[in-house]
Write a protein that binds this DNA or RNA. Structure first.
Lengths: 221, 221
DNA sequence: TGCTTTCATGAACGCTGTAAATTTACACTG
DNA sequence: CAGTGTAAATTTACAGCGTTCATGAAAGCA
């Protein structure tokens, strides 16, 4: 019988490769990294990784799944913050931004990439589901405690899209730094949260009819 | 003197190539299209395009600039809609979404791509500036007429990020179609707009202190 | 008709991801 | 301990990539 890789050996190699891949993906983009470079860094032949991964896409998927898991872990940890739902949501929001800003490449790897047929990679699917669950969970707490009002699922997507939009525009350098990011983020959150208390418009009726502009009003507080 | 390409000839070839490139970029992604394929479709040698473009990136930049111009034109046209600022903003918002949904690849080419050193391509820079100007212009109208309240520049970025976040998540298939997109978009716009009338929080004071949850209030209307 | 200059081309270079053939090295058997 | 079978690693090879450069074709002027 020949030598046979133990499960631990396989995991060790895969981990080593993923670490190298993530660093290089971050530096040069997933597509600016070649198998030969990766192999050289690992000190093995160019084709050796093919015993541990089906192809380059599978490496990318593994790296993305790892990023999703780190992201989810950060959010889950933040969600254990003491205090009411509002405090928790602040902590989670901060963790979200902290991750996006400190690991922009990982963030891009996660959300700024439409990897085709993600179903090929069950582990990636699991990790994305975990991250998503954590992200939207805290919205339910906010609704439950009355800090915002509305359908948690709907609001979850809207809040997520709002933050995500800011982050990707920021990471792409499209915000030009005009208003600083913290202001943008605070404004986005404040508008969305406060907006949930506005009376729901009558669905689909002719809202575009003339109606006098309002000039603020001051609700309360 | 030898034959000399007229300016019109150059423009004709560039346009022809850009049309083919855009179609193929849309179908297979900018990076899944090779110069050889492109040249084959044009019926010329693989290296002929290099007389008209410095490299593949310049082709991409030209295609992106064209997309930005079409996008800006659509928004500008919508901005001439009759009615007050609110009607205009509705028209512009619809034009934005219509473009994103009917030409998702062009949208991704425009916003979902961090082309390095865009300054290399002045025409691209011009086209992006034009699109951005149109996008944020209508916010000023809304503020001027009192439909929303606040700093137009800040609000412009926030509204843009909100829409953009929804669109990219939708295009990336990350919304799962749970709430339909129209609902998400309507909600986002409503929350942001109504939120601008909420009293501004006192800046930076300890807002995370306990404060009783509010259970709606109903502002007016 | 020739000369000159511009444009188009084909060949070639150094890459890429990866399949297939080949070599290496280990664990077991006689 | 030598021998052997086979998993693992390497080498080789291929098709394709973006791009450069020497070469050939065509066109205007003398």
């Amino acid at each position: 019988m020949p030598r046979n890789l133990s499960e631990a050996d396989v995991k060790a190699f895969r981990d080593r490769l993923c670490r190298a891949a993530e660093r290089r993906f971050a530096a040069h983009g997933a597509q600016g990294v070649s198998m030969r470079q990766l192999a050289a860094e690992l000190g093995c032949a160019a084709t050796t990784p093919y015993r541990y991964f089906a192809d380059k896409d599978e490496i990318l998927a593994a790296v993305r799944a790892a990023a999703f898991d780190r992201f989810a872990a950060a959010l889950e940890e933040a969600n254990t913050a003491s205090g009411d739902a509002r405090a928790k949501s602040r902590a989670v929001g901060e963790a979200y931004l902290r991750f996006a800003m400190s690991e922009p490449d990982a963030y891009r790897l996660m959300f700024d990439m439409a990897q085709p047929d993600e179903n090929r990679f069950p582990d990636l699917k699991r990790a994305t589901a975990r991250a998503r669950r954590t992200m939207t969970a805290y919205i339910e707490g906010l609704v439950r405690e009355g800090w915002i009002k509305g359908d948690p699922k709907l609001l979850g997507y809207v809040f997520w899209a709002g933050i995500h939009g800011l982050v990707v525009l920021h990471l792409a350098g499209k915000l030009g730094g005009a208003p600083d990011f913290a202001t943008l983020h605070r404004t986005m959150m404040r508008l969305l949260a406060e907006g949930t208390f506005a009376p729901q418009a009558a669905p689909q009726q002719d809202m575009s009819q003339q109606r006098p502009p309002r000039r603020a009003a001051g609700r309360r507080r």
